[in-house]
Amino acid sequence: MGVFQRIREKRMLDSNSLATTLTSIIGAEKITETEAMNIPSLAACVEFISSKVAELPIKLYCECGDETQELTDDKRVSLLNDSTGDLLDCYQLKKAVIRDYLLFGNGYIYPEKRRNQFVSLRYIKQNNVNCVKNSDPIFKKADFMIYDRKFRDDELIRVLRSSTDGVTGTGVIDEANELLTVIYKTMIFEKYLVVNGGNKKGFLKSARKLSDEAMESLRNAWNKLYSNNGNNMMLLNDGIDFKESSNTSVEMQLNENKKANNDYVCEIFNLSPSVIAGTANDESYTTAIKTAVMPVIRAFETALNQGLLLESERHRHYFAFDTTELLKGDILKRYQAYQIGLANNFLQADEVRYKEDL
């Protein structure tokens, strides 16, 4: 019985070693930001969502009794919509934060304050922020290190995606790393085919031993054939044969796989491929706004209410995006909505003209 036990343990050890080896060779590779943004469908999805959010104005409201008033003369409104006080303008700041939010799950802004007055909003690239957390799963605390400076968790505005600790999130690069890696490797394979003139990989088989001069001549002819410069050719003498090494079924289905993978990328962002292609109808576009853009807007609003409101303002003040800008491209629907608002007396003519910049 002891012999069989040792054999069983050895098999388990061999299986674990094999799994560890395969993971280290295949699974450990992680796609980078530059590689991910080279994938057209992913870059288009990130551009669509980030640009839609960045073009929206952000307003500050105050609940005063039974009325809700918009505060237009607050410095924070100016920082969010006009000038951030940083090199990035407000559009670039919002777009950069959303890009980091989508790709890495973390978007950071440093709100510079002098006493209780906000003077600037400064975007911080997510890879410049290091989070130091305690080990308590209930009473969680964290500090942030940016270069040689230490910040408390309430000193940074954090826009987080799929967060479980309140200080770090999970982006699509980590969530769909295997899929994105496959798509990127497919693009590299296509690039290889283009660079090599579409010639397949393979090896040469010789019936007899070749001399050094013959080997060198064959090597030069081989390099010319795969250089993709003009109409190159090579002659194989008697006894030398070419054997293909990459004639697989996957190679014959690259176009089908590429289209399916691009659709999967759109699904990660809750977008329809027709929206990215620019062929979506009004219903598909509205669905894309609801499923892909609005959750990002809500995450951004929550982060602003957490980081830009003073303690005395938290019960009555709140920031909100003006989402009516999303429908400004459809003038018929916009005017029909104004007509309903005017007919039911919750909009006035001067308010409609203000929304239309008249």
Results as ranks from 00 to 15, higher is better:
residue 107 G to D: 12
residue 59 K to S: 04
residue 101 Y to Q: 00
residue 62 C to M: 15
residue 95 K to P: 06
residue 90 C to H: 12
residue 91 Y to D: 02
residue 65 G to A: 11
residue 81 N to V: 05
residue 73 D to H: 04
residue 101 Y to I: 05
residue 109 I to A: 00
residue 62 C to E: 15
residue 93 L to K: 00
residue 89 D to Q: 13
residue 109 I to D: 00
residue 70 E to P: 06
residue 89 D to I: 11
residue 89 D to Y: 13
residue 102 L to N: 05
residue 68 T to I: 15
residue 112 E to G: 09
residue 61 Y to W: 11
residue 72 T to D: 12
residue 90 C to F: 13
residue 79 L to C: 14
residue 112 E to A: 11
residue 94 K to I: 05
residue 74 D to L: 10
residue 77 V to C: 08
residue 62 C to V: 15
residue 80 L to I: 10
residue 53 V to F: 04
residue 98 I to M: 07
residue 100 D to V: 02
residue 108 Y to F: 13
residue 100 D to C: 02
residue 96 A to S: 11
residue 102 L to Y: 07
residue 61 Y to M: 10
residue 54 A to L: 06
residue 80 L to C: 08
residue 86 D to K: 05
residue 84 T to C: 12
residue 82 D to F: 14
residue 58 I to C: 04
residue 96 A to V: 08
residue 108 Y to Q: 02
residue 57 P to T: 10
residue 101 Y to A: 00
residue 55 E to L: 13
residue 90 C to I: 08
residue 81 N to Q: 14
residue 70 E to V: 12
residue 94 K to P: 00
residue 102 L to S: 08
residue 75 K to I: 12
residue 60 L to A: 14
residue 99 R to M: 03
residue 100 D to Q: 04
residue 86 D to N: 04
residue 83 S to H: 12
residue 59 K to L: 01
residue 68 T to R: 07
residue 88 L to H: 09
residue 69 Q to N: 11
residue 108 Y to R: 07
residue 110 Y to G: 00
residue 112 E to P: 03
residue 97 V to P: 01
residue 91 Y to A: 01
residue 82 D to W: 12
residue 89 D to T: 13
residue 104 F to K: 00
residue 77 V to D: 06
residue 93 L to H: 03
residue 59 K to R: 14
residue 95 K to Q: 07
residue 113 K to V: 05
residue 77 V to A: 10
residue 74 D to S: 09
residue 108 Y to T: 02
residue 114 R to C: 09
residue 76 R to T: 05
residue 108 Y to M: 10
residue 91 Y to P: 00
residue 87 L to N: 15
residue 90 C to R: 10
residue 58 I to K: 07
residue 73 D to Q: 03
residue 71 L to F: 13
residue 70 E to K: 08
residue 64 C to T: 07
residue 104 F to L: 03
residue 81 N to A: 09
residue 107 G to N: 05
residue 75 K to Y: 09
residue 83 S to C: 09
residue 62 C to K: 14
residue 75 K to W: 08
residue 113 K to Q: 06
residue 53 V to E: 08
residue 101 Y to N: 00
residue 89 D to E: 10
residue 102 L to A: 07
residue 104 F to W: 03
residue 115 R to P: 04
residue 79 L to G: 03
residue 105 G to L: 01
residue 108 Y to H: 04
residue 94 K to F: 01
residue 107 G to C: 07
residue 67 E to Y: 09
residue 78 S to D: 09
residue 102 L to V: 13
residue 111 P to V: 05
residue 85 G to Q: 03
residue 105 G to W: 00
residue 62 C to S: 15
residue 103 L to Q: 01
residue 92 Q to G: 12
residue 86 D to V: 03
residue 96 A to G: 02
residue 56 L to P: 01
residue 115 R to E: 06
residue 105 G to K: 06
residue 113 K to H: 05
residue 108 Y to W: 07
residue 113 K to I: 05
residue 58 I to A: 03
residue 78 S to R: 08
residue 73 D to E: 11
residue 58 I to V: 10
residue 102 L to R: 02
residue 80 L to E: 04
residue 66 D to T: 13
residue 67 E to K: 06
residue 109 I to Y: 01
residue 63 E to C: 04
residue 91 Y to F: 08
residue 114 R to H: 14
residue 92 Q to N: 09
residue 81 N to D: 11
residue 95 K to F: 05
residue 93 L to E: 01
residue 103 L to I: 11
residue 93 L to F: 02
residue 75 K to C: 03
